[in-house]
Design a protein around this nucleic acid. Structure first.
Lengths: 250, 250
DNA sequence: CGAGGAGGCTTACGGTGTAAGCCTTACGAC
DNA sequence: GTCGTAAGGCTTACACCGTAAGCCTCCTCG
């Protein structure tokens, strides 16, 4: 960069905290979270591991930063949605909230490792908080009391950011793997087989699997259509909130 | 043990896989998940690290086993609940399901690290599956179609086991710490202060915090009363499921 | 009694995050 | 121009992690 730099900025290097974080995100996207080590990140950037410590305090700080990058992406995606007109009816909080959350979800689907990291943070990203603030704003416009909003945010939990931890995905989420997907399928099949094997002990479970049939997935991860299930759960909560909001009215 | 052992059991050692897993649970309870390493676990048992590998295949297997122990505890706690009488009305699925889930939760509250481990498993514990089977059974008795049951299980997600990942607990969950709790409080206060500092950027968030007032917690972890919030979210889902079940009826 | 293996132990390797310290370079003040 | 300062690289080294390989000593069973 040959441009004159702002008043107290770093002098010569093209390497900045921002570039480090960006690189970390790409690396995690490509090779999975497990592959994101200080040494491998440094290699990616063409420097030595210890040099990273001039831009991030330690690995926790790196992960904080990486979360912040993803959160910024979320905020950006949400920002692209068309704003509610000022004269929108009170009831429009619900589709609006739904849209924002699903927009956030598209971002997290691009970074499958991010949910894990998000959950492990103990400090929070300002971008996330700003996103939350917009969700709260929507509910307020819907006539929610702050008390109800507060409960609502807790009830949504991580779903507000677009993910919900599925127990039992026989593979998924762990590494990039980037394979043809037959590995996941294999694991899912193996799991199902194992369940069938003890059918007498798990009557309802087995019967359910037989009936619901986990066959035609295709869309996302192995077993079920996560997107459908995510929206099902989300709508369940939104409907419930709607009823509670109605009840609050005088 | 001086008793004659059953037909193909291990010969002399008092150390068994069961004892290893038990020890691992106690260690994690006392010192946190981070303190559970092969070496520290071995020290706890008075042996060398490598000796553990005669009882568990590797660390993943150890964690699988540890999850299984906790899941067995859950199954046990659920088993202690009084069974539904045969002539219970169809509608009793709901309080029964609620009771089972809250019973599972009491177990997980005794092992705060367990939720993290549970989520990280890719194979599943038979005890967990059996527990799930009982939940499914309850819903079936409530007249749910298998399709609805399936959606319901996804919607409940980890909540079925008694935990929901709270975004933003300023401390908690990471280590035993066993301190007076003032550390958590400090972190929570610091976080709140930081939020207040940018009140102009987060109008709704700050107003909500001011109104809801996160002051009188006392019960569980730092910020909010997790138990209340957990039950709120759980009831929101159960109510929603009840309505859908009604709608399914002819 | 002798073979075999279960279950300890020791040693060693590669990988992790990171503390400590050195060397170069660019910048701002004189 | 010169020089002090410090940003930002690099090298080395340490503690700790999971675990592969191999040794030894019993106990058990044929």
């Amino acid at each position: 960069m040959t441009s004159p730099r702002a008043a107290g900025t770093a002098p010569r290097s093209a390497l900045t905290r921002a570039r480090v974080l960006e690189s970390a995100v790409t690396l995690a996207d490509r090779d999975g979270l497990g592959a994101l080590t200080m040494r491998s990140l440094a290699r990616e950037l063409g420097i030595e591991a210890m040099s990273l410590y001039h831009h991030v305090a330690n690995k926790e700080d790196l992960l904080d930063g990486v979360v912040d990058v993803v959160a910024a992406e979320i905020q950006d995606a949400v920002g692209r949605l068309e704003a509610l007109p000022d004269d929108a009816p009170e009831s429009s909080w619900k589709p609006a909230l739904r849209r924002q959350i699903l927009a956030a979800r598209t971002v997290l689907l691009r970074h499958p490792w991010a949910s894990t990291v998000l959950e492990s943070r103990k400090s929070f990203s300002l971008h996330v908080v700003r996103y939350y603030d917009s969700l709260i704003g929507l509910m307020r416009r819907g006539g929610f009391s702050y008390d109800l909003v507060h409960h609502a945010m807790h009830a949504l939990g991580s779903r507000a950011l677009g993910f919900s931890q599925e127990l039992f995905e026989p593979d998924g989420a762990t590494a990039g793997s980037a394979g043809d997907g037959s590995a996941e399928e294999g694991a899912a099949d193996a799991a199902t087989a194992l369940l069938l094997q003890m059918a007498d002990e798990l009557p309802h479970m087995v019967e359910m699997l037989a009936e619901v049939g986990h066959q035609d997935t295709g869309s996302t991860l192995g077993w079920c259509d996560d997107q459908t299930e995510f929206e099902f759960g989300l709508d369940l909560i939104l409907d419930g909130l709607e009823r509670l909001a109605e009840r609050e009215k005088p």
